[in-house]
Amino acid sequence: MRVRPSQVRHILLDDSFINALLATDAPQHDAACQLYRTLVDNYQMGSDRLYGLSTVLGDLPTEFRRNALAPLIRLNVARQHRVAAARMSTNFTPAAALSLVMMRRERVKVVATAAHTYDALDIEVLSVADAVPMTVAEPVPVVGADADVVGGHVVGSDVVAAAAVSSGSESTPVPRSTDGSSPTEP
């Protein structure tokens, strides 16, 4: 089936997604591979166009870049993009800020990621971050002042940090009840 150019999705594969693809021991590796396979199928049909930042692709092993990431179009990051990224809000990591700058400048509307970095933004996100359940193996003995205990799980700043380390990503904001009572378990 022929795809109309206006229907082609332009998708940036961010650093967390590419790292998840590369690292076979990463928790999101399988989910990333599965999503990447769909993207590659779409790429072959011409309905998706895949992009990667030169800053990310340049750090990868050549073999991986040339084969596994062969469909990716390299978006060259220049000094002006870094400057624009540096001017952005501190809510984003430098890598995420750079990805967002390149997305806007190159008119890329979709991002594939293995993190929750872009959840707060009004952009289309293909995420494999949720593939890894955010569970805590052991109860954390010391709970911070801003933490709540919900259904045996501890939800708070310490656990958020623990989850971020375990999955290599930032945490999903915990849904809060609108009537001001304690948060319910998702």
Partner: peptide
């Protein structure tokens, strides 16, 4: 060209 690149990606990742 699209097919070849897609095949290379699939082969490299075993997809």
């Amino acid at each position: 060209s699209l097919r070849k690149q897609a095949d290379r990606a699939r082969a490299a990742l075993g997809l």
